[in-house]
């Protein structure tokens, strides 16, 4: 990503509504693993993606744009709208600047 794009993303993130209300973390994890990970896994056909790949703001911006494949494809074409919301919740909850204290086991 060029710096300009980064800047644009940042601006977009700051200007867009910040929360994706109502999605399901559990379902989000499921669809992320089932759908997204089928390509975005290590050694997969696309670059590896994990929730930690972006900050909360960056994820929100990404979902606000609703684009996929470097903007070439709409997210809706890969996931159903509700699933998109779930995945967004999951990714935001576990983003690289999310508060997620480690636990023991489980």
């Amino acid at each position: 990503m060029s710096n300009t794009v980064k800047l644009l993303v940042l601006i977009a993130a700051l200007t867009l509504p910040l929360a994706a209300e109502g999605g399901s973390d559990t379902k989000g994890k499921f669809f992320f693993k089932k759908t997204c990970k089928s390509c975005h896994a290590p050694g997969g056909s696309a670059k590896e993606v994990t929730p930690l790949s972006k900050t909360q703001a960056q994820w929100k911006a990404y979902f606000a744009a609703g684009k996929h494949k470097k903007g070439a494809e709409k997210l809706d074409s890969v996931l159903k709208p509700e699933q998109v919301k779930d995945v967004q919740t999951f990714l935001v909850n576990h983003a690289s600047d999310s508060p997620q204290p480690e636990t023991c086991g489980g």
Partner: peptide, 13 residues
């Protein structure tokens, strides 16, 4: 280390 995961049907929150 990477490990696979069994994907089961998710429930409602």
């Amino acid at each position: 280390l990477p490990k696979g995961e069994f994907l089961f049907m998710p429930w409602d929150e």
